[in-house]
Structure formats: structure tokens, C-alpha cells
Amino acid sequence: MAPLEPSIAVQDSDPNAQLIDAFVVPTDTGSVVLIDADYGQLDAVAGPFQIALYSRLPLSMGELAVIRARVEADLFTHAVRTAGEGRRWLLALLTGLLELGVVGVLLAFLFLNREPVHAVVAWAVPLGFVPGLFLAWRAVARRRVGARARATLEVGELLPTTAIGRDGDSLARLRDLWRFIDQPNEPRDLMRLERAARVRVRWPAAARFYRALAAAPKVSTPQGRLARLRARARGQWAAPHPLTYLEARSQ
């Protein structure tokens, strides 16, 4: 039997690559992967995408492959969702101006004809016209994000290799976060981590991430024999700080 080839290991970043930063950060039960990247700012025309990994311990190739697949899913789902925004934004702006004109005429009519029967008109203005104006404003405001998403769908590719993260600021933030959690007598708690990320490390993305993690529903435990076996096994086998809780999240 010929064995399969493993993927290419972690390496230096591609010089043209758009780096997507992935951090292995501590949690109350172990560690998770935090993707600190604004997908709307990535420009696929400038080069392919590549994950830059910041981790104090090396990850196995399988873990890297899972991170890559999750980031690929996040990245292109985001691109599909935002690709329609800002398309033909000039026409959308003209439509918005036309709508604004209709609202203006309607308000002038209300001002000149104050009759009880026209109360329904006063209700219809915010309910009926604000969404249309919002659509026009959004098309103009998000035209660049939409253009980048369309470029991602057209030419974007996530490289199959993972780069070692080398940004000094990012390394320092990650080190400070781990130092905080490694202090003796410091209980591992998501809200303490959130405060440390916000106040000590000044890392807003990590603070948002911990808040979201604390608010996420926990996995329910099944009842019966399986639950008892689980409880027994948890005490006997569970590692104190597992490293492989992988969750890719975009900001």
C-alpha cells in the first residue's frame, strides 16, 4: 500500500499573499483558534490568501487542515453574502434620490393637508420609505466591500500552505494574553480573559471573541448510561488544557 503524502508543513509567508491572522488563544477549558481578519478588507486582486498562524505550540497537520477548511468556508460564504452589495451603486443612488423626492412631496402634502384620515400616510412614511433609503445608502457605503467580495469570488484562492505569523505587535499581544492566563492562582474564566484582552492587552477583536464565546450555548449532555460514562471518563481522561478546540470566526 502506497501511503498518502501529507500536506506541506508550516512555512514562511508568500510575498504576495494577503495574510489572514489565526491566533491560538487561551480559554477557560483550553485554547481556541481566533481568526482576527476583516474579510471585507482583503483584496484578492493583490494576491492569494494565506493563513498566518500565531501559536505558542506547534499544531499538527490535521489541525492546520481543519483551520484551513473552516477559514475557506468563512471567507467564501462572506464573499457570496456581500458580493451583491454596492453593485451599480450609482443607479442605486439615483433610485434613492428619486425615493427621497417622493418622500419630500409626501411630507409637503401632509404639511399642507392636516386631516385625521391622513394619519395613515404619516405612518407609511417611516415604515415604507426608510428601508428603500437605507438600501440606497448601503449600496453607496459598501460599494468597495462589494467590489472586493466579487474579486474574491472571481480570482480569490486560499493557499494550501500555512505561514508562521511574524508580526511583532500580534506576537506581543498573544504572548501577553498567555502570560496573564499562566499566572499562578489566576482562575481561568472567560470574563477575566475578556477583561484582560480589553484592558491589559488592548486587543478588541479578542475581547469581542471572548464575549461571544461566553454567550454561546453549551452543548447539552444526554441522559442515562451515556451521561454516567461520560462523567466517569471526564474525571479520568480529560486533559487539563486541550489545544485542539478549533473554531474559525471572522469579525
Binding site: 501529507p6 497537520m61 490535521g62 489541525e63 492546520l64 487542515a65 481543519v66 481522561w237 489545544l243 485542539t244
Partner: peptide, 15 residues
Amino acid sequence: VSSDAHAGLGRIERA
């Protein structure tokens, strides 16, 4: 298709 070992999966198999 590539074959990639996963440390967590290996740990579970051994346990």
C-alpha cells in the same frame, strides 16, 4: 487528496 495526522484524534484513539 492528502493525508494529515490530527494530534487530538490520535490522542482519542490511544485512549
